[in-house]
Simulated assay, not measured.
Amino acid sequence: MTEVDDNLLVRAVRTQQGDGVDVYAFFLHGSDLTRIADISRIHRDEKDLKGFQRKEIRSHVKAIVEFLDSGPVLFPNAITLALSSDVSFDVSRGPKPKGLTEVGQSGTLNIPLRKDGERAAWIVDGQQRSLALAKAKDSRFPVPVVGFVSQDVQVHREQFILVNKVKALDVRLINELLPEVGSLLPRDLAANRLPSELCNLLNRQQKSPFYRLIRRASDAANQQSVVNDTALIAAIKQNLRGPYGALSQYKLAADASNPDAMYESLVLYWSAVRDIFPDAWGKQPTESRLMHSAGIKAMGSLMDQVMLRADSSATPETEVREALQRIAPLCAWIEGTWEGLGLQWNEIQGTPQHNRLLAEHLMQLDRKLSRPTR
């Protein structure tokens, strides 16, 4: 491994995967990783989602540094990089051993050295390890690297999700990235794409009652956000389940969904929730259990039952608001006791048991109060 005119030259093996994508395997000194590769942090500007990497976990980085500095260690975990098309590869020449199984070509990989933010590679998997290797005492610790050539951030996100799906990666970060990935993903991940995109719309559109209230992985600094996106996504997934889910009628087939109609239905229902419970809306979960994950999930379950009647009504919005007004006096979102549950308002927790009890209680109240009086 040498440097020539602001370029790093390394021995590498090249093969191809996918639709002719060049993939390289090579070794670097640990300190060289952050010299050739940028870390694309997840964040948002006024319009779009940028990057894909989670924040640096200092305790994790410190623990890896301590391990690397503890003495002779084995650390064969490969770093995954996305390489720009500016890298070049020269195939080695010479005789080949008889019976060689040639899966790839050996040669020299030329990686340009550039300043931070303009580097020729991006770390897809292994950012904490890369940061630790840069801080370790042994700057020449050899690190295995696998790099694929792509400047498409969508491809980077896809690989980031696929690699980290089997690790303890924040599900909120995966959920937020999913709508930005257009290629085919495993079925269990693809199922999350639609509710996560609906969650994005509810957070971004000014007509939405959730406008800027949803806490997403990329906007932790937004003090206005009070609703856990994981809870809302779980509620929307419930609404999508057939045959009685409030949104299932708009999900005709995998390629024939009507997300606009789903969004309008969500806005209709949750706008009514906001207007019927104004004192409980928009507050921190510690001040209002309506904004708590238990409240969001329970009211999401109630949506299926209420919208089933509303969709067959000539005035759906009126039907929803009247249903919520009937149960409003019996709700204890910010004070009082939930009669029938025997729980103070702030004793409601986000446990599966409390989620189920609260949802069933609200639906039972709705069924009871929606019956015509004789």
Rank of each mutant, 00 (worst) to 15 (best):
E3S: 10
D6Q: 13
V13Y: 01
T15C: 10
Q17S: 12
D19Q: 11
V23F: 02
A25Q: 14
F27M: 12
S40Y: 04
R41M: 10
E46M: 10
G51A: 07
K55C: 00
H60P: 00
S70H: 04
G71A: 00
V73S: 03
L81I: 02
K98N: 04
Q105M: 11
Q105W: 02
T108E: 14
R114D: 09
K115S: 13
K115T: 13
V124P: 00
V124A: 02
G126N: 02
D152I: 06
H156E: 15
K167H: 14
L173Y: 08
L178F: 11
D188M: 01
L189R: 08
A191C: 00
N192S: 12
A217K: 07
A221P: 00
A231R: 01
Q238F: 08
N239Y: 01
Y244D: 15
S248Y: 04
Q249H: 09
D255M: 04
A256D: 13
N258W: 03
M262D: 09
E264W: 03
S265R: 12
V273R: 01
I276K: 07
I276T: 15
F277Y: 11
G282D: 05
G282S: 11
S288M: 05
S293F: 05
A294Q: 06
M307V: 15
S312C: 09
A314K: 11
E322W: 01
R326F: 06
A328C: 04
P329W: 11
A332E: 08
T337I: 13
W338M: 04
G342N: 06
H354V: 10
L358T: 01
M363C: 14
L369F: 12
R371D: 11
